[in-house]
Design a binder for these strands. Structure first.
Lengths: 211, 211
DNA sequence: CTAAATTCTGGCCGTGCAGTCAAAAAGTAG
DNA sequence: CTACTTTTTGACTGCACGGCCAGAATTTAG
């Protein structure tokens, strides 16, 4: 026999439930972005949404599940935005630049979401202490980067280097852009992204073959 | 009238107090590295040190002060270890490589300290939510990197690029090495560092001037 | 030795947290 | 209106935390 509360995970959701869930996720994003992950308690999120705390428990199995859905939503928005731009590129060099600039461009219109994403990336851990949602463990993004670098080396566009270290470094640079760009209030995100694209272009490109 | 407990900050410290403080700092490092920053409560640190919780309050003005001293100690150990190697270098290119390899070499013998440092860097915030000890406010290390890059550009060894973005990226790569290299057990730290040095050498070096 | 200063103990307090629940309210259908 | 389901409320539980402190233990000074 099922517990009375909490709609099951599989059944189709009523309109009102879908709306509530979206509202709660939106509030979570705003609270995390505004007050930091540590201060984003269920009570605060509920207050920001103008509902009582129990409602969150009613609609989400727990705080972790809520955060998971926040990440999933924001992350899929990024992929959705950047993937089409990348499809159009032919060379690995262009792919590399498009990936970095695409992420930055999407961020520009979604500061709040991405601030929250960075907060969650940095703070949420598994019980064993390893990062839970950080991109270093997100195979999806890692595979995209590996693909770019592998392609570049196959084409001879890129010099030989350790693909894993390069991809990790690339991810770290993006993470850093996520996590800390708001700490430089005078800093221009797109300029940062362009510089980053330059840095990785220089870091990867094949040596000049003299004649 | 002074509070009865807590030796003042300025007086010279007795042997026993110095020893206790060192013991507490060491325990804090081990607990943070082992369980993560979030789980490093005063109670856990005290238990690990085999003393009662009150002792920590007696010797340190508060948890933040304790963390501050942990950071100061570990950080100064790194600088102490790497600075002499850097002194011996003449070119910016050599400085760059020495900085990365020196940090990695020091890390090799101080895994616990550096895991703890990374944890604190990532998690400790000011009340307003901005990072407290991260690279964005740690001017010391940032200035070292800025110095290297500025020197390289002045010498014409390095191409023109945004020094701040390059330094941030450099720092992110090091942070990443701090934070995650243990997640790849098969991975050789020194090989990672050599690759990293290569990456930044390629990223920074001046374009070939064809005679 | 005694007296005073230093150091330590262990329990207590208030706070904030995630999650629970009985009951109230709102919505829906006949 | 009535009977039923879905949704919401807000008080409550139990827990972990940082900080506090009266008094005990220990060390030092005279």
């Amino acid at each position: 026999m099922q517990s009375k509360s909490r709609p099951s995970g599989q059944k189709s959701r009523s309109f009102i439930e879908t709306a509530r869930r979206a509202q709660i996720i939106a509030s979570a994003i705003e609270v995390i972005a505004g007050h930091g992950f540590a201060k984003a308690s269920l009570a605060r999120i509920a207050e920001h949404a103008g509902i009582s705390k129990g409602v969150i428990s009613y609609h989400f199995a727990g705080k972790d599940k809520l955060m998971e859905e926040v990440v999933t939503q924001v992350y899929s928005e990024i992929v959705e935005a950047v993937s089409p731009m990348m499809m159009a590129q032919k060379s690995a060099t262009a792919l590399l630049r498009t990936q970095i600039l695409g992420v930055a461009q999407h961020m520009r219109g979604h500061r709040t979401q991405l601030k929250a994403l960075g907060e969650i990336f940095i703070h949420l851990r598994r019980p064993d202490g390893t990062p839970r949602y950080g991109i270093t463990t997100s195979e999806e993004l890692f595979q995209v980067l590996e693909h770019i670098y592998r392609l570049g080396q196959r084409n001879g566009e890129f010099r030989p280097f350790d693909i894993r270290v390069m991809a990790i470094t690339h991810q770290a640079a993006l993470d850093n852009m996520f996590a800390y760009w708001s700490a430089f209030p005078e800093h221009d995100l797109e300029a940062h992204a362009r510089e980053l694209a330059d840095i990785f272009e220089h870091a990867t490109r094949a040596e000049e073959t003299p004649s």
